[in-house]
Nucleic acid binder design. Structure first.
Lengths: 112, 112
DNA sequence: ATCTTATTTCGATAATCATCGAAATAATGC
DNA sequence: GCATTATTTCGATGATTATCGAAATAAGAT
């Protein structure tokens, strides 16, 4: 994942409803959830939810599959993994943040 | 970190200049960087940079300290750690993150 | 005190975002 | 074909965000 991909993923998640939505799909696991069930669970109108689903999908964080009349949404785990990896590697000096912060400047990035 | 804190941190980082800025401060390490040097490095006017610094600071991701005439900014590693922990624990419970998600917070990073 | 340097705050503007009802689309059943 | 159900797209609206020059503030030097 590059900087632009990370920004896209962060932007998609940086909204209360969408972060809650992604968490919900993570909990739902491989089964995923149909849009209607998500809207009901989050207490958001269908049209609003559809907007948020599109945002997350645009960032590649969730996937969509039709199942009969419903559209099933699932969390895209590798995408979230990629984001966490990006943050860990680029924004945490490649190691535990707390430990890294207490090391002298020259040593920090080597100690992966 | 709770949902609101995570949203605040994600929102602060979900902007190209700010993510680049945070990365820059991570690279700078404990020394930090004065505002002017950051603005020059990122190619952003001082007033714009000041806006972004305030956003990151509001989310608790960076700290500020006066040094003579300059204001030195530093990455707040524990804050980023908290965000990564939140994402790992709440948004990575599936197959790819199963090992990490099932461990207590303090044990997780050592076992990489 | 005055001048210079570093940075922030102000104010205005353009752009993007979130919300939600109403209308449109897609899939299925009768 | 017509009705029903699930979901999305459209369109309008209010809210937030990003940008940047100009003016204001803060610290230090002479």
């Amino acid at each position: 994942m590059d900087l632009h991909g990370a920004v896209a993923a962060l932007a998609a998640l940086s909204q209360e409803h969408r972060l809650a939505l992604f968490r919900l799909l993570v909990q739902a696991g491989e089964d995923g959830m149909p849009a209607g069930a998500i809207a009901e669970k989050l207490g958001v109108p269908n049209s609003s939810l559809s907007f948020h689903l599109a945002q997350l999908r645009g960032a590649g964080l969730i996937s969509q599959e039709r199942r009969h009349r419903s559209l099933i949404y699932r969390a895209n785990y590798p995408a979230m993994n990629g984001l966490i990896d990006y943050l860990t590697e680029n924004c945490c000096a490649g190691a535990d943040c707390s430990a890294a912060a207490s090391l002298p400047s020259q040593e920090r990035r080597k100690t992966a």
